[in-house]
Design a protein around this nucleic acid. Sequence first.
DNA 1: AGCTTAACGCGAAGAAGTTGCGTCTCGGTC
DNA 2: GACCGAGACGCAACTTCTTCGCGTTAAGCT
Lengths: 164, 164
Amino acid sequence: MGRDALTVPLIAARAGVTPSTVYRRWGDLRELLSDVAVERLRPDGAPADHGSLRADLEAWAVQFAEEMSSTAGRTYIRDALLGDPEQGNAVRCSDYAAEQLKAIGVRAAGRGEAVPDVETLLDVVVAPLMYRILFRPSDLSAAYTDRLVATVLGRSSAPPTPKS
Amino acid sequence: MGRDALTVPLIAARAGVTPSTVYRRWGDLRELLSDVAVERLRPDGAPADHGSLRADLEAWAVQFAEEMSSTAGRTYIRDALLGDPEQGNAVRCSDYAAEQLKAIGVRAAGRGEAVPDVETLLDVVVAPLMYRILFRPSDLSAAYTDRLVATVLGRSSAPPTPKS
DNA sequence: AGCTTAACGCGAAGAAGTTGCGTCTCGGTC
DNA sequence: GACCGAGACGCAACTTCTTCGCGTTAAGCT
């Protein structure tokens, strides 16, 4: 069935309940889709270990870019952003990325590597990717993501203001 | 009247036409709001001249952050993003920022200053601001925007890959 | 066992979205 | 100057979604 032809009565029928139940629980189709989107955007597991901070970040960024820039990914992002005016679901999406980056950072620190702040990673790697996905149809090639990672690694790797 | 209580029949009545006319022309309330949002997000005029590239960028970034992070601004951004699956309106918003940055850059070049690439400015200054506005409720203080500007000015100011 | 609370189904009423048809106006053409 | 085609709009009927009150059921607690 069509994605944008989705309606609350259809979902209710599929779920075996009446539409009023769905309306009472979620109040709106957008809120429901927003919750669904957040669930779909949740990362599967811990980011893969490639042996070095740079390799981990590059691999993660490439995968992130691919998933988020796909048609399905962009739909989920838009749904997540739209359905919740309180930004709760948007924050959740950002937290997913932050958690993954945090895990990569902890692992790198275990290897003795200098690790950039998560906030810095969000600003330098995630934000440009997301901005381009949402606002500009551009190529998010591995070369581009690698450049972003190189930027953040070439910079002050241990900022004086740790977050935790 | 309530912002989210807006409906096509209301708009049609205000415009003195029948709802079917509005539906035929825009097809959807979201598309209409998207077009309205883009119009509202259009910058008023050329960015102010403060005598130096750094001052111009800082002033522009602060104003941009204030406007976009306000309740009205975020609503417009969301409307613009949401109403157009083809991303045409989102691209338009990004182009607005790019044009402003371009103007600042041209002016700085006229002064003999080294000017960062517009793409770089978008990645380093605009993207983090927009990402935080959309995904993270954080303070977009002047200190933060200044730090973003300092980052982009401290970096390679004339990348080897000019865009135009 | 009896009570409270929350959730659901049901059905009606209201509002929004959709469509086909007729009319009008604006161009261009003979 | 009259005719004709295209596009846009109003009108109205129809479908679908959305909301709401009421009665019922099931779960948890005393």
